[in-house]
Amino acid sequence: INASIYDEIQQEMKRAKVSQALFAKVAATKSQGWLCELLRWKEDPSPENRTLWENLSMIRRFLSLPQPERDAIY
């Protein structure tokens, strides 16, 4: 996982035409506020920051699903 995940998140929300609230809920079981802060600060993903790493790993797993599967989840 690297910093490009933040751009991938924004691209996916645009592509699927979903809100931050919906993306946060389905991709990371988090709130819109959490995702907003995540995208604002764009912390460097590092395994040392375990909570951030685990949350980004969950999002990465969601983004790695085939597009039709992600669309069905939304």
Rank of each mutant, 00 (worst) to 15 (best):
A3T: 15
A3V: 09
A3R: 15
S4H: 12
S4V: 06
S4E: 13
S4Q: 08
S4F: 14
I5N: 05
I5R: 00
I5F: 07
Y6G: 01
Y6E: 02
Y6L: 01
D7S: 13
D7K: 11
D7P: 07
D7T: 13
D7M: 11
D7E: 14
D7Q: 10
D7A: 11
E8I: 01
I9P: 05
I9F: 00
I9G: 01
I9S: 01
I9R: 02
I9E: 02
Q10A: 14
Q11G: 13
Q11S: 10
Q11A: 09
E12S: 00
E12W: 01
M13V: 07
M13W: 01
M13Q: 05
M13T: 03
K14H: 10
K14L: 12
K14D: 14
R15H: 08
R15Q: 01
R15G: 01
A16H: 01
A16P: 00
A16L: 04
K17E: 13
K17D: 14
V18S: 05
V18R: 00
V18F: 03
S19E: 06
S19C: 02
S19M: 02
Q20E: 13
Q20W: 06
Q20L: 15
Q20G: 14
A21W: 09
A21T: 08
A21V: 08
A21K: 10
A21D: 05
L22T: 03
L22N: 07
K25S: 04
K25A: 15
K25Q: 11
K25V: 03
V26G: 00
V26S: 09
A27W: 01
A28S: 10
A28Q: 02
A28V: 14
T29E: 15
T29F: 06
T29N: 15
T29Y: 10
S31E: 13
S31F: 05
Q32L: 03
Q32A: 13
Q32G: 14
Q32K: 10
Q32Y: 06
Q32S: 10
G33H: 15
G33M: 14
W34R: 02
W34A: 06
W34V: 07
W34N: 04
W34Y: 03
W34G: 07
L35C: 03
L35E: 00
C36L: 12
C36Y: 09
E37L: 06
E37R: 08
L38G: 00
L38H: 05
L38R: 04
L39T: 05
L39C: 02
L39D: 01
L39E: 05
L39Y: 00
L39S: 01
R40Q: 13
R40Y: 10
R40T: 11
W41V: 14
W41G: 13
W41N: 07
W41A: 14
K42R: 14
K42M: 07
D44V: 11
D44K: 11
D44N: 10
S46C: 14
S46T: 08
P47I: 12
P47F: 08
P47L: 09
P47G: 06
E48Q: 12
E48W: 10
E48P: 08
E48D: 08
E48I: 13
E48S: 10
N49P: 02
N49G: 05
N49L: 05
R50T: 09
R50L: 11
T51V: 15
L52W: 07
L52P: 01
L52Q: 15
W53A: 06
W53L: 11
W53V: 09
W53F: 03
W53M: 13
W53C: 07
W53S: 04
E54D: 14
E54R: 11
E54H: 11
N55M: 04
N55P: 12
N55H: 15
N55Q: 14
N55S: 13
L56N: 05
L56Q: 07
L56I: 10
L56C: 05
S57M: 09
S57C: 15
S57H: 05
S57D: 08
S57E: 14
I59W: 04
I59F: 05
I59R: 00
I59L: 08
I59T: 01
R60C: 07
R61Y: 09
R61F: 06
R61I: 06
F62W: 06
F62T: 01
F62V: 02
F62H: 06
F62N: 04
L63W: 00
L63R: 00
L63C: 02
L63T: 00
S64T: 13
S64Y: 04
S64D: 08
L65W: 00
L65I: 07
P66Q: 10
P66F: 00
P66L: 01
Q67W: 08
Q67V: 10
Q67D: 06
Q67S: 14
Q67E: 13
Q67L: 13
P68H: 15
P68Q: 10
P68E: 15
E69W: 06
E69S: 08
E69A: 07
R70T: 05
R70S: 04
R70Q: 04
R70Y: 04
D71H: 09
D71K: 05
D71Y: 03
D71N: 02
A72M: 12
A72Q: 14
A72C: 03
I73N: 08
I73Y: 15
Y74M: 05
